[in-house]
């Protein structure tokens, strides 16, 4: 029992540190979110200001903006900890690397996933999404963004400290997001047609469960590899 509480406690401390660190360095926090809003408001200029046109694309469009914005937030996840040597100190503290990997993913979700989901509400409404579809969109974004954070953390750990790692991490991560994009966007468009997209949401939840169990291992061994 006591080991359980220390594990949760350690996880909490790790997450809190990362959140505090990024909170102080507000650029890392703000740029991905600004990027998300900017990408979304570009679409009406490209497609049409007609709400009927925008409405049919709204789900996919917000999903693409989320994928891109969360991908650019990945670079900062390990960058400063790697360059200052803090990552090395954390590894040498003896804390299980699985926890470090999981904590980084949670911190990434709190810092970029959560604000994006919140901002998606006014943006979706401005694109003409109705209340029911909005709730489905938010649910799919919540499940999907958590998976994105988990996969992205592993990829971010793999590419930290490499040449042009900012672009590399995006190029490496995006192919893995395709299933999420498919299920997320389809869930939203189905809900707009009045169907409750149970299957799609179950798939998203299943992918999240898979990511929670597998990606911390990948992140842990990526951290160890990058430090060696």
């Amino acid at each position: 029992m006591s080991t359980d509480t220390t594990t949760w406690n350690t996880l909490f401390i790790l997450v809190r540190r990362d959140v505090l660190k990024t909170w102080r360095e507000s650029a890392d926090l703000l740029y991905p979110i600004m990027f998300f809003v900017l990408v979304t408001i570009l679409f009406p200029f490209a497609l049409s200001p007609e709400i009927l046109v925008l409405k049919s694309f709204a789900g996919g469009l917000l999903w693409i903006a989320t994928l891109l914005a969360m991908s650019i937030s990945l670079e900062n996840l390990f960058k400063t900890d790697y360059s200052t040597g803090a990552l090395e100190v954390i590894v040498l503290s003896g804390v299980p690397l699985l926890l470090v990997g999981l904590a980084k993913a949670i911190a990434n979700w709190v810092l970029s996933g959560l604000p994006i989901i919140i901002l998606a509400i006014p943006l979706a409404l401005s694109l003409g999404i109705d209340a029911f579809s909005l709730s489905i969109l938010l649910l799919s974004l919540t499940l999907g963004s958590a998976t994105i954070s988990l996969i992205g953390t592993a990829i971010g750990a793999l590419s930290v400290g490499l040449r042009s790692s900012g672009m590399l991490v995006i190029v490496l991560a995006l192919p893995f997001y395709i299933p999420l994009l498919i299920f997320g966007a389809v869930a939203t468009s189905n809900s707009q047609a009045g169907v409750i997209p149970e299957a799609e949401l179950y798939f998203l939840a299943g992918l999240l469960a898979l990511a929670v169990t597998l990606t911390p291992w990948a992140t842990a061994s990526a951290i160890r590899t990058r430090l060696s």
């Binding site: 893995f176 395709i178 898979l210 990948a218 590899t225």
Partner: peptide, 21 residues
Amino acid sequence: RSASILCLIGIVNIPIVHYSV
């Protein structure tokens, strides 16, 4: 080693990508 980790993430993803597509 890094490429191996990426490759294994890919192995898990190939069937998922395939069936979702």
